[in-house]
């Protein structure tokens, strides 16, 4: 079960690339890819800098007009999906 304190990172075989205002993550081994809209792109950028979900959550709450419960639920759902597709791993 993924928790707020989980430390997450992009595995070596995954390439991220900015395409327009979106970000694409591609797993070179499996060919699986995932597109992130500008909000998702910001999440990924913060995750790279902060490392944990809880730190990203705090930053994003300052930047976006959203409730903590809603943001947490959205981020957990997104993170779960990325973990399931091998585009993120727990450190």
């Amino acid at each position: 079960m993924l928790t707020r304190d989980a430390r997450l990172q992009i595995p070596e075989q995954v390439i991220t690339r900015q395409v327009g205002d979106e970000t694409i993550l591609l797993n070179l081994e499996t060919g699986t890819y995932f597109g992130l809209d500008p909000v998702g792109s910001r999440f990924l950028e913060l995750l790279g800098a902060e490392g944990t979900l809880v730190a990203v959550l705090a930053k994003m709450l300052e930047e976006f007009d959203v409730t903590e419960a809603q943001l947490e639920a959205d981020l957990l759902r997104l993170t779960d999906e990325m973990l399931a597709n091998g585009l993120l791993v727990t450190a």
Binding site: R17, E22, I24, L26, G31, Y33, G35
Partner: peptide, 17 residues
């Protein structure tokens, strides 16, 4: 259309690698 856009992005990321 977004699917086609992302698919192009994914193909090209591999190609550029």
């Amino acid at each position: 259309l977004r699917g086609l856009y992302l698919n192009t992005a994914a193909c090209n990321v591999r190609l550029y690698e």
